[in-house]
């Protein structure tokens, strides 16, 4: 059953997303916001950079439009492999709803961890390009593990939890060698261990506020490179947890298809030291 799910993702979903994206390329019903202003799909389903949600809402829908995205992502780490399938909708550039399913294959330890994340993000005020303070959004993510036995064996208290976050993003025109600079900062309140894949709560402490930040330079209007940093709590004494970071490059073929590649350094995960690896993510936007 599990194997067939994975085959569905790679053999069927990927080509469908790519084909749908190309089929509607440069046709009508693209959102009217500039290309790239919807970010890409973060691993928790929200529009963001990959590791962290950003304040901007998914797709390029403006205030009078709706948009949607479908994303498949995979990270190949030293001892793990993470697969994410996600979808989101942007309603009038005010509300973003998203759903993501994460599967972490424990290549070295054996077995897998799976969680579903349902998220909502609301634009509080502002605009990425035109408002002097940028765009500000608040969001919530409800996370639910399929099987909490491994996380609880490591000391987690719960198999589900909620993150809430406040995020701000701003594009600064012509900031770096004439290129536009994208800045993001997110403050998150969470009780999730390793984003939730190792459960929620623990013996070290309760909920924490953590900071996440990123920048990206638009080398061209369609190509952004940058880095992301995500502070993490460390509340399981049996499995030390480190901050996450990435170097990323995202290319927007058009308003409908983007491809992101990244280098990840995620630190210790579930007792296995210094997890590094590559990341790829393909997003289709309608």
């Amino acid at each position: 059953m599990r194997i067939s799910t994975r085959q569905v993702i790679t053999k069927i979903m990927l080509p469908i997303i790519f084909a749908l994206g190309l089929a509607v390329s440069s046709q009508a019903f693209a959102g009217s916001r500039l290309i790239g202003t919807g970010g890409v799909g973060a691993i928790e389903g929200a529009a963001g950079g990959g590791l962290s949600p950003w304040a901007l809402l998914s797709s390029t829908a403006s205030g009078q439009e709706v948009g949607s995205t479908a994303t498949v992502s995979r990270a190949w780490l030293d001892d793990y492999r993470l697969t994410v399938e996600a979808a989101s909708a942007n309603i009038y550039d005010r509300v973003e709803v998203s759903v993501a399913r994460q599967t972490l294959d424990l290549d070295t330890l054996g077995g897998e961890l799976e969680q579903t994340i349902v998220g909502t993000k609301v634009r509080l005020f502002g605009d990425l390009l035109y408002h002097p303070w940028g765009i500000w959004s608040a969001g919530i993510q409800h996370k639910n593990l399929a099987d909490d036995s491994i996380p609880k064996a490591l000391g987690a208290n719960h198999g589900q939890g909620n993150d809430v976050y406040l995020s701000a993003s701003k594009l600064i025109f012509s900031a770096v060698a004439g290129r536009n600079l994208l800045l993001n900062a997110t403050l998150r309140n969470t009780d999730a261990n390793q984003g939730g894949l190792l459960g929620f709560g623990g013996n070290n402490r309760g909920r924490d506020w953590v900071a996440e930040g990123s920048f990206g330079v638009f080398m061209t209007p369609k190509w952004v490179v940058g880095m992301e940093y995500r502070q993490k709590p460390d509340r399981l004494s049996a499995a030390q947890e480190d901050d996450w970071q990435s170097l990323y490059s995202a290319y927007f073929f058009n308003k409908h298809v983007s491809l992101t590649a990244a280098w990840l350094s995620l630190g210790d995960i579930a007792g296995l030291a210094s997890q590094k690896g590559a990341y790829a993510s393909l997003q289709a936007t309608f």
Partner: peptide, 30 residues
């Protein structure tokens, strides 16, 4: 509305690219 505004910005950006305006100058004007 925002959609109209964004579309005109996009037309201006594409027009600048089309007419060979260097990217740095495009960005600074925007």
């Amino acid at each position: 509305n925002d959609a109209h505004f964004n579309r005109v910005v996009e037309y201006l950006a594409n027009a600048m690219a089309d007419e060979g305006v260097p990217l740095a100058a495009q960005n600074e004007l925007l």
